[in-house]
Design a protein around this nucleic acid. Structure first.
Lengths: 263, 263
DNA sequence: TAGTGGTCTAGACCACTTC
DNA sequence: AAGTGGTCTAGACCACTAA
């Protein structure tokens, strides 16, 4: 037999999915359910906490517990890296997205810090340098309006970016054309990429930074960007709120018995 | 100021990451910490529950709370679909994986059920048929040894698979060569795919089926497989334990201003 | 200031594992 | 039977929000 708090949570969850409680609507207050005989305050609270962990509601002190209105997933495809957006135009890719969708660009939607750091193990491995080698880290917090959606930290080898706008400590949102444009102007035209992604529980600082509902997971994305000569020019780590994005990839079915060059 | 249970959880988490508590080792029993003055039983329990939600420990009644030994992520690349594995050989792709990694194949590592069902909305949309149209669903639960790792449900249009081994109600693990081989023999050679993935909280039945630690999230994968003529011949939905897999994709940087045909 | 969710306690009891 | 984590209660108090 399931615990009392689980049964209560399931009953409420069913009513939410059924539409009895609409998105944005307040759930009954904890004390109301206690008086109605649903159990002690702790028990009802446990049920509400479970609903929050399942992404159905969000609670806030002094306010109440409301049904979460989950925005549809933002679908990310590789077209977001289209050369036309950063090479030919003069807009950072993410700004081009905003313009295309008719939303206004706001200056504070991307903040960043740039500096030399000791390469974390993963970064060192990607570049094939000893762990602890100094590399440039360019960290951004990307927002959609007021809500942060993900962090993105790019790592560069100093010999590649030294002297470019990329490591200007006081840039705008990466400046005209974005990071890929800067690399292009420096003689490194990007050609192909690898993305690797997985999910994990959010760390405590990420919960605060990304304003995540407690117990939400994140997607961590590792992006390697190469020139046509297979030179790695950027290694980036993104941390995305799990409930806000999906990723989409197209690829041919591999055939190791054929000679087609790059797969 | 952080709650007492949060501070306790953070102290223990730090000791785990520090190696004071090794993977597989038992944490102090709840009543021990209560006697040691860490707080009431509920408070200590809350701390342990938080550690469990963060993937650091697993608790079990009658046994204790042990530090979780997390296996490295299994990295999935598109080479798992290599034609050589299912067209030329006689092994299901996942068996070929096992052979390559030196593990024994066990008959019960994949179970499946096959039948006609009303197409769920997503499936109907993928095939461009009305929602509720009857399609074949082939559901597998894939295990690694005793532990289930993911479910995979393939949906097919009846006119494509009718009369093939794919819908044999009593097949082995998809039979010789797997599903792609059956389609190949039926005149549908697969050519390219699209994968879309996102994460979400596990549903209650998935927690049971995949033996997930409570509050773990899952990755849901939507795979569309096409012939060279862009005919969709399989739409599959996978549900993977979030902590066990990563996905990897390689792709060229798109250039919409060039004429290169398929991106 | 009133009302909300969140924390904490002390103790009783339950469900499960191990011996 | 003994010992583990899990549930539940009743009530006190805290932290935050809104009018």
């Amino acid at each position: 037999m399931a615990p009392k708090w689980r049964e209560l949570a399931d009953r409420i969850a069913a009513r939410i999915r059924n539409g009895d409680y609409a998105p944005g609507e307040r759930l009954p207050h904890i004390r109301e359910l206690v008086e109605a005989g649903a159990g002690s305050k702790s028990t009802v609270h446990a049920a509400y906490k479970a609903l929050e962990a399942e992404g159905l509601v969000t609670s806030s002190r002094g306010h109440g517990t409301v049904v979460r209105s989950l925005a549809p997933l933002k679908r990310l495809g590789i077209e977001r890296y289209d050369k036309a957006k950063w090479r030919d135009g003069d807009q950072v890719a993410f700004i081009a997205d905003r313009v295309a969708s008719g939303r206004a660009y706001r200056r504070n939607e991307q903040t960043q810090t740039v500096g030399l750091v000791a390469a974390p193990p993963i970064v060192a491995a990607a570049y094939g340098v000893p762990s602890g080698t100094e590399v440039y880290a360019r960290a951004r917090l990307v927002k959609e309006g007021d809500r942060p959606t993900h962090t993105l930290t790019s790592y560069y080898l100093p010999e590649i970016v030294e002297g470019t706008r990329l490591i200007d400590p006081n840039p705008g949102p990466a400046g005209r054309g974005g990071g890929f444009r800067v690399l292009y102007d420096a003689g490194y035209e990007i050609d192909h990429m690898t993305e690797e992604l997985f999910t994990r529980p959010a760390a405590a600082n990420e919960v605060a930074l990304l304003q995540l509902p407690s117990s939400e997971w994140v997607i961590e994305l590792h992006r390697s960007t190469y020139t046509a000569e297979d030179l790695l020019v950027e290694f980036a780590i993104g941390v995305h709120a799990g409930s806000r994005f999906s990723w989409r990839y197209d690829f041919p079915v591999p055939d190791s018995t054929a000679n087609k060059g790059r797969q």
